[in-house]
Computed example of a mutant assay.
Amino acid sequence: MPKILVVGSINVDLIYRVPYIITPGETLHSTSCHIGMGGKGANQAVTAAQLQAEVYFVGAVGEDHYGDYALQNLRDRNVKTPFIKQEGATGQAIIQVTDQGENAIILVPGANYHITAQQLDEVCDCIKTADILLLQLEVPLAIIEQATKLATAAGTKIMLNPAPAQPLSDALLQQVTILTPNETELALLTGVKAQDDKGLKEACQLLLAKGVQGVVVTLGSRGVFYYTNKRNGYVAAKKVPVKDTTGAGDAFNGALAVALSKGQSLEDAISYANEIAAYVVTQSGAQPDLAIHLTCN
Rank of each mutant, 00 (worst) to 15 (best):
Y226T: 06
V242G: 03
R231W: 11
G247Q: 04
K243A: 12
F225E: 09
A248R: 03
A255K: 02
A251S: 13
L256V: 04
K230G: 15
K230N: 15
K239H: 12
G249Q: 06
G254W: 01
F225W: 08
S221N: 15
A248K: 04
G249W: 05
Y227A: 09
F252S: 04
A248D: 02
G233N: 07
R222P: 07
Y227H: 13
P241F: 05
G223T: 11
A257Q: 06
L260F: 10
K239N: 14
D244G: 03
A251P: 12
T228N: 08
R231Y: 14
D250E: 11
Y227T: 06
R222Y: 13
K230H: 15
N253M: 09
A257R: 12
G254C: 08
Y226K: 10
N232R: 14
N232V: 04
T228F: 04
T228S: 12
T228H: 04
G249I: 04
N253W: 06
A236G: 09
K243Y: 11
T246W: 08
A259R: 05
Y227I: 05
F252A: 02
P241T: 11
V242F: 02
T228K: 10
D250T: 05
A259N: 05
L260G: 12
G233R: 01
S221D: 15
A255G: 12
N232T: 12
T228W: 10
D244C: 00
A251E: 09
D250Q: 11
L260A: 07
T245M: 01
T228A: 03
G247V: 02
S221Y: 13
G223Y: 11
D250P: 00
F225V: 04
A259P: 01
A255Q: 06
A255S: 09
V242A: 11
G223D: 10
L260H: 08
V258I: 08
A259Y: 00
P241W: 02
